[in-house]
Nucleic acid binder design. Structure first.
Lengths: 110, 110
DNA sequence: TTGACATCTCAGCGATTGGTGAGATGTTCT
DNA sequence: AGAACATCTCACCAATCGCTGAGATGTCAA
């Protein structure tokens, strides 16, 4: 559909309902940072500890930890200490939350 | 896969390659605002003029116009005056750019 | 136990961002 | 031509955001 397919003498429709994009905006804001997006991309291939991700992303560990805290609160990732070497905190994605993010964003870009 | 499926005595892999999330971050930043996300969602159903979208989103027209300018520069939307009533500037999505945004974001959330 | 390592938390700062107001351009109608 | 309308641009301000540094907690190894 191009613009010229519109009805002749268009009168702006001023009573359109506002789309609900709240969830999509929240998830997009989380993805809108190279470190957070990099973390999510890394975790797509399986769990990683903080120092692994910091090295891969060339960022400082406390910085990565800060971003992980935000994504943890948003429910996108989950942390658990490894049972053998508890010094490392391993992060993994919450697949349900990631699926929710995916569908919320696809709803906007549909 | 859960964390306990990891190899015993894990040694952090510090030589992982950094994923390229540049495009996804740019598109996510554009979606990370209720007005811009609302615009994209509205345009999914066909072209709209600025005043229509401003009314639907309950935002001021110059504010909507500002956001449209950013999305225009990013190539996500395109504007053209209606041939009959040239007072209205009709916006439509650039389907190729939207598809690029979709695949960049899905690559991160894969 | 001591030291090294991995992670977390948080205050502070510089940078970026979104909304606003005002003014300018272009279009339609009378 | 003049008035009303639709849109655009831009400087300004307040709010938000990301990075840093410092200090604290917890874990392992010597």
């Amino acid at each position: 559909m191009t613009v010229d397919d519109l009805p002749i003498l268009p009168t702006p429709r001023r009573n359109l309902t506002a789309p609900d994009v709240g969830a999509a905006v929240v998830y997009a804001a989380l993805l809108a940072d190279p470190i957070r997006a990099g973390i999510l991309r890394l975790l797509a291939d399986g769990p990683h500890c903080v120092c692994e991700m910091a090295a891969a992303l060339e960022a400082r560990e406390n910085n990565v930890s800060n971003h992980l805290a935000r994504m943890r609160e948003a429910g996108l990732v989950r942390a658990s200490r490894h049972t053998v070497n508890a010094r490392f905190q391993y992060y993994e994605r919450d697949h349900e939350a990631v699926a929710a993010a995916r569908s919320a964003l696809l709803e906007v870009l549909r």
